[in-house]
Each structure stands twice: as C-alpha cells, then as structure tokens.
Computed example of a mutant assay.
Amino acid sequence: MIHPLSDVSSSRIGTGTSIWQFSVVLGGAVIGNDCNICAHTFIENDVIIGNRVTVKCGVYIWDGISVQDDVFIGPNVTFTNDRYPRSKQYPEEFLQTVIEQGASIGANATILPGVRIGRFSMIGAGSVVTKDVPENSLVVGNPARVIRKLEEPKS
C-alpha cells in the first residue's frame, strides 16, 4: 500500500509494505517485504531496508545507510552520513552505517555516520551513538554507552 499523498519513485518496494502520507522514497532505494514506513519520512537513493522493518514518523534515512530485517526505528530518530558537512561540498563516498537484524532505536536518538549497530541491540531514547554498538547490548546517553547485555530473542 502506497498512500496517494506520498512520493515514491522506487520500483523496488516489497510486497506487503505500507508507505504512508507525506513520505518520499527516491528511485534508488530498496525496501523489503512487510515494512511499515510511517508518515513524514524520507528515504534517499543509496539505502537498503530489509524485511519487516518499522520506520516511525519523522525519520530521514540518508545515502549510505542499510537497515537489516526486523529493525524498529522510533519516531524522530536522526541519522547522519557525513562527519564534516559543508554546504554544497559532498564526500566522494558517504560513510556506511549498518543497523543489524532485530535492533531497536528509541525516539529522538542520533546515529552518527559510519557506525554499526549490532544484532538485537537497543538504543535508548535520546541517545547519541558515536561508535559501534555490540550485539545484544542496551546503550543509553550522550555519548551512548553500554549499560547492560540483553538476551537474544527466542525464535
């Protein structure tokens, strides 16, 4: 389901995926099956989103970001892809950010470029992720720090 008030240029949208109003998906983006892309989102060209991913309202996913299966991205999560941004000056290649399978990112968290968020990890609301997050970890704060290990979900 692609809402008529969204602007979706990509033809690579999986079955069962919903894209809600006022969302923009550029032509190069790939979105898997059974995803929920909520209102007021933006997905750039060099983005891959896996299956069963939820992207809540107010999230912009920039070039160089890949999101694996079963990831939850909370409202107003901020991704970045350039460590030293300047107007009209672009890097030759954007840093790659990977959100691994089953990770959850809380509302208003900020994810700096070039990090890997490990499988089944959780990012606390409002946290600022400046470095890689180990799998099965709960991180919070600014900068985000591991406060405890989590059990891997049972299948």
Rank of each mutant, 00 (worst) to 15 (best):
I105N: 02
L138F: 07
N51T: 14
I13E: 14
V24C: 04
V140P: 04
R12S: 12
V139T: 09
P113K: 06
I19D: 13
S66A: 02
C57V: 08
T41N: 14
E93H: 15
V55M: 14
I13W: 14
A29E: 02
V24E: 09
R145L: 09
M1L: 15
G118P: 13
F72H: 05
A103M: 01
F120N: 12
G28N: 05
N51V: 08
P113C: 02
E92P: 15
D82C: 07
S121F: 10
T80V: 14
G102T: 15
S11K: 13
V146Q: 05
S18Y: 12
E152N: 03
Y90F: 08
S104Y: 10
G32T: 03
S23H: 09
E135T: 03
F94K: 02
H3L: 02
A144W: 11
V77D: 15
T17S: 06
D46W: 07
K131H: 03
G114C: 15
T110Y: 13
E93I: 07
E151V: 15
T41I: 15
P75G: 10
P91S: 09
S127L: 05
E152A: 08
D34G: 03
P113M: 03
D82W: 14
F42H: 12
S23Y: 06
A29P: 08
V47R: 00
L5V: 02
I43K: 00
I123L: 03
S155R: 15
C35G: 13
G64N: 12
D63F: 11
T41S: 14
V59K: 07
K88G: 09
S127P: 12
T41C: 10
R145N: 04
V24P: 01
I111Q: 01
C57T: 14
Y84G: 04
F120D: 15
G58P: 11
W20M: 13
E151K: 02
S9K: 08
I13N: 05
K88T: 01
G124E: 07
E100A: 14
